[in-house]
Design a protein around this nucleic acid. Structure first.
Lengths: 214, 214
DNA sequence: GCTAAGATATTGTTCAACAATCCTCAAGAG
DNA sequence: CTCTTGAGGATTGTTGAACAATATCTTAGC
């Protein structure tokens, strides 16, 4: 047993949440889930803690745990952190290792290839990898894991998005432009472009959320 | 009962760790601690998970939890994140609210007053508040809590520092200089100064750690 | 001195029970 | 009719004991 039971349960729940089987706002009942997954309440609670740590669920005392509902304010907040971490990566790009730099270009290429195949799900994944690679230029394990958590959180908002294509297509060329700026060492321009890029993406998500809410 | 039992247990353990009662590397035995604090093993394990989340302890499968031992690599990593979050705050200072800006100056003043009183413990606390206020200029709740966790982690390293005065005194005037730059709207210079400031502080900690290890 | 098998201690997980808290909903006062 | 109040039911919070799984320590054998 390489992984603890609690971790396996957390993996299962994470898949269901990200797959849409457990929509935001759903309460995760200890008794029902424990019976279904064949684990005790204590172990299930241990799994809940892991998901709380990833911000995929929230825990309200004496109320239980619920699948996280992302408010517009959360999206704004997340993009503030992303701007801090990703621009820090761009500023550190000069001193980053070749592997970290290659990961940026690699992600852009894969996104373009997926777009050509019409696989917009994969475009979305590649886009996330691209931004994780940007933050990864910072060369910090803590930044990497923080970025992973942020993007997992953001995925909760993507579930309410109607068309992945509408959201990801406009950013394909901007991703490539950013990667090129980095390859050419134009870090100042890259940082400026990244800042407006993130502002635009945030605004697009917020508009879509408001639209879906009405 | 406003807080759960697990949270109260986590609070007392956190106090002991930060107070030095539980030095880094100490194993937290479930049976011994549970008996001493009068809580069941299950509740204690729940408290452990909270502390793991704060990175104050590490959990090794089938081995138990241990008070975190900060390696030099951790210090380097932490300062990379601090640089990202604090410089992001400085860059956002122009649009920050008056309360957030006042918190920066306030922390500097309190540090100076404590130094005049010779209370170097309090100088250290005020210094942490100063840097938390810098990151707070970013206006993001997630950045604020991330910063809190980072500083709590760093405090583990401070325990091995022999003299708080030796570490904090040289930064008093630099803190004031930074605050003045921010008040005058010289954000570019403030960011540059902050970057070298953090590099110097990191180097000082690393040197002290290496010295203590030999 | 080294390796391997067994003994011991600790953690991982389950279970059942009870306490504490929150939510629902109906009854009553204004 | 609205608002408060309280009882009831459902869910979570916590406990203690038991057993399983794993790591560490001890010891026997070479």
């Amino acid at each position: 047993m390489a992984l603890s039971t609690a971790q396996r349960v957390a993996d299962t729940l994470r898949d269901r949440i990200e797959g849409g089987g457990l929509p935001p706002g759903t309460q995760l009942s200890e008794e029902a889930l424990g019976r279904e997954l064949g684990v005790s309440r204590n172990t299930l609670r241990e799994a809940f803690r892991l998901l709380v740590h990833e911000s995929l669920v929230v825990h309200r005392l004496n109320r239980g745990v619920f699948v996280r509902v992302l408010e517009p304010a959360d999206v704004t907040d997340i993009y503030r952190v992303r701007a801090a971490l990703e621009t820090a990566g761009v500023r550190a790009a000069d001193g980053a290792g070749p592997a970290a730099r290659a990961a940026v270009t690699e992600a852009v290429t894969r996104a373009e290839r997926a777009a050509a195949d019409g696989d917009w799900q994969e475009v979305g994944s590649a886009d996330l990898r691209f931004h994780r690679a940007l933050a990864g230029l910072g060369g910090s394990a803590r930044i990497d894991s923080a970025m992973d958590r942020l993007l997992a959180e953001l995925r909760l908002a993507f579930h309410t998005m109607p068309s992945p294509r509408r959201f990801h297509e406009p950013f394909l060329t901007r991703n490539r432009a950013l990667a090129t700026l980095l390859e050419n060492g134009e870090y100042g321009r890259a940082e400026a472009e990244l800042t407006t890029y993130l502002d635009d993406a945030r605004q697009l998500i917020l508009d879509t959320m408001r639209e879906a809410a009405s």
